[in-house]
Design a protein around this nucleic acid. Structure first.
Lengths: 247, 247
DNA sequence: GCGCGACATTGACCTAGATCAACAAAGGCG
DNA sequence: CGCCTTTGTTGATCTAGGTCAATGTCGCGC
């Protein structure tokens, strides 16, 4: 399944993230320029893409799979600071070293660009910079919602919020309506969820059990989740009403 | 002191944030175009600039003073998600409604642009978009450091971190060396600090007293702080070594 | 089919920080 | 000058979530 991307160079026209990634706004000629400098890299679940402080000579889009950004303190405390889904962008133009640990939590395929050519291209192609600005502003909004979660929500609300985020992103990819029964697989271990939420893995486990006991979710195995009522889940998450769109 | 800005239109050439704000990269002709559509607004300490959900017909740069972005849950729990110092940018091109409560915590002067003309200008002036991208990426980094703070730091570390951030920003504005004795005034009430750090104001008060007792800081009145050793403060903040630059 | 390692659950107990409450200091303002 | 409001401090107590530890489950290699 990985092989199909890892060996061949996928044509941009067939790319699953063509209209959501950093290249979304590009015209055909601009796309051709990107096409000329792109290359694919694959990682297996659990592999580290980059360590904080490493020299990063490329930037990339997530094509498929999930990656995380985490920060670590000397004594080992860890906080996830980014959850990268397909179409999300990794790396920062103009920065030489990675600021965070980047890890593949599932099998992962990335569409990479060497930094220097990408920066040159960006200078000549306003559509790339425009799209990157838009995506960065979205990420900043997500980070700020996450800050509310970390600073003020209870453990139960944190878990419900995370489930809602995963369910929503999953639904938006697969274009399902959001108001009925949702089914998805958790792409994160309990430990990764704990790192996301600023909790311990024991608390994550307990709260998931509690949500199950209370009928907010159904569990099949450890990872397969069914949400009978998305509205109920949002209520448990402490989010006002519909999760507020802004855009 | 406010008057000097609130009535007159300051010339961009004399602007204190000319080289740090969204206009930093602009050439003289681009600056003239911005100059033509800008206007100043002043707010007194404590005034609300905008409520979350309000229609926002302008974007702006903070010229002087401090503003905060906060999110509020229905039951009143509050989390600050942005601390805006001079040169920081408020508002999002392409967004019609404010996503957060914006409050002046000190007397505040903002250099405003009506949204539509600003967006038009941005489309014609790549330097503005470039600079805004750069600033947004910086804000995203700051948000991620803040997430580590909220998710994993102890109350004492949180306070020390906040003091370090304020001291550092203050120092960078006034161009002082960072390794010696630093003196500054806290621009935030205990309650605002609590909202920043995801704590209660009582805990903030107690931890500040503890840091004072332990000689990490000296206090004169409630707001005037002296930091005898910035390195000691960073140590208390749990930040690795020098606070790591990346750029 | 068995044993091992990774992942997850559950219980017993403890502690950092929240909550509730009293009081103190510092302005503004009649 | 004394009163009231806003802001901050400190104490006593409570509790959500952390810590430590035992046990369960599943998939994989032999």
């Amino acid at each position: 399944m990985l092989q199909q991307y890892s060996q061949v160079t996928l044509d941009c026209g067939d790319c699953p993230i063509r209209h959501r990634a950093v290249c979304a706004r590009c015209e055909t000629d601009e796309l051709a320029a990107l096409d000329a400098i792109k290359f694919y890299r694959s990682f297996e679940a659990g592999q580290t893409v980059a360590w904080s402080g490493d020299k990063m000579d490329f930037v990339a889009s997530v094509v498929s799979g999930i990656a995380t950004l985490t920060q670590t303190m000397e004594d080992g405390r860890r906080q996830m600071v980014g959850l990268l889904l397909p179409s999300d962008f990794v790396g920062r133009p103009g920065r030489e070293y990675a600021a965070y640990d980047v890890t593949a939590t599932t099998d992962l395929v990335m569409c990479c660009f060497r930094k220097k050519p990408f920066e040159d291209l960006m200078a000549r192609t306003p559509h790339i910079g425009q799209r990157l600005l838009e995506m960065t502003l979205d990420e900043l909004d997500a980070a700020r919602e996450w800050m509310l979660l970390l600073g003020r929500k209870t453990a139960r609300e944190k878990i419900a919020s995370l489930l809602a985020i995963i369910a929503r992103r999953d639904a938006s990819l697969n274009l399902r309506p959001t108001s009925k029964r949702l089914v998805f697989d958790l792409p994160l271990t309990r430990e990764a969820m704990a790192d996301y939420l600023g909790l311990t893995l024991e608390t994550v486990s307990r709260q998931i059990s509690a949500l199950k006991r209370d009928g907010v979710i159904e569990l099949e195995g450890k990872r397969h989740v069914t949400v009978p009522s998305y509205d109920r889940l949002l209520e448990e998450a402490g989010d006002d009403a519909d999760g507020g769109f802004l855009v």
